Amino acid sequence: MKRKNAGERADIYTRITEKIVTDLEKGVRPWMQPWRAGNAIGRVTRPLRHNGLPYAGMNVLLLWSEAMARGFTSPTWMTFKQAIELGGAVRKDETGTTVVFASRFTKTELGSGGEEFDREIPFLKAYTVFNVAQIDRLPDRYYARSEPVLDPVAHIEHADGFFANTGAVIRHGGDRAFFSPAGDFIQMPPFATFRDVESYVATLSHEATHWTGTPQRLNRDLTRYAKDKSERAREELIALS
């Protein structure tokens, strides 16, 4: 039984690790989503349980990654049972997202001399949740759109000037931040959806780095550098042999 639990725990860790690595290989950093979702109330940046409490730890990465991949704008997630208890119904053929619950329990054991001692045993349990966007007939509060932003985040004037001087085409809209090599433009979520101006500048700076790195803008031939580097490495190997 212990071997089975250990195997299940290792499998959960493996699946989570593989998912995060896959996102990173696609250029997606699942821990970075500094703008709020389309129907989040206020500047919420962490996924929420059905009761409004935020998720923590690796569940934040898992749910952010899944929301971005599948276009979910609601920050709220719940189990199949919780949806039913709230009067809702998960739509047919919808697939859930795996999250984990980690805790410890205390077990009393006997030592070599017959004495009793308590040992804390950690455990990890996986379960499935669904985004509000996958569930019908929930109370209206789960589908409420965010109120208009009445107190927008203030801009940093010199930062705006810097990005303007780069000449990059910066578009705003949607819920993703990316650089489009084909269209040669930077796409950003609306400014007012960011939790603060620092998050906006940090995200735009990251995308501007991709913008500056396109071949047509660099206009550099690095083939000679690569060849020289290869030849130097070969010479060093010969010297060491």
Score class of each variant (00 low, 15 high):
Asn5Tyr: 07
Thr45Asp: 09
Arg36Trp: 12
Ile12Glu: 00
Ala208Met: 00
Glu25Lys: 10
Leu63Val: 14
Lys107Tyr: 05
Arg145Ser: 04
Gly88Cys: 10
Val129Glu: 07
Ala208Asp: 02
Gly27Ser: 11
Gly114Arg: 04
Glu85Arg: 03
Tyr143Gly: 11
Pro34Ile: 11
Arg119Gln: 02
Asp196Ile: 04
Arg232Thr: 01
Gly111Ala: 00
Pro190His: 10
Thr106Glu: 14
Ala144Arg: 15
Gly183Ser: 15
Ala239Leu: 15
Tyr143Glu: 01
Gln33Asn: 13
Leu86Lys: 11
Val169Pro: 05
Ala102Tyr: 09
Val90Ala: 05
Val100Ala: 12
Glu198Tyr: 12
Arg46Ile: 12
Tyr13Val: 02
Phe72Lys: 00
Asn59Leu: 12
Trp64Asn: 12
Lys26Phe: 09
Ala202Val: 13
Phe101Arg: 10
Arg176Phe: 14
His155Asn: 09
Gly161Tyr: 15
Leu237Arg: 08
Arg145Glu: 13
Arg70Gly: 05
Gly213Lys: 07
Ile12Met: 02
Glu207Trp: 09
Glu207Val: 08
Glu115Val: 10
Thr166Asn: 02
Phe194Asp: 09
Arg234Leu: 09
His50Phe: 12
Arg9Met: 03
His172Pro: 04
Gly111Leu: 01
His210Val: 02
Gly7Met: 01
Thr193Asn: 13
Tyr225Arg: 05
Ser65Phe: 01
Glu115Tyr: 13
Leu63Thr: 00
Thr223Ala: 06
Ala239Val: 14
Thr45Lys: 14
Leu222Lys: 03
Thr73Cys: 12
Lys227Val: 06
Ile16His: 09
Asn39Gly: 12
Asn51Arg: 07
Lys2Asp: 07
Ala37Pro: 15
Pro215Phe: 12
Val197Glu: 05
Ala89Leu: 09
Tyr55Asn: 10
Leu110His: 06
Thr108Trp: 07
Lys19Trp: 09
Ala159Cys: 07
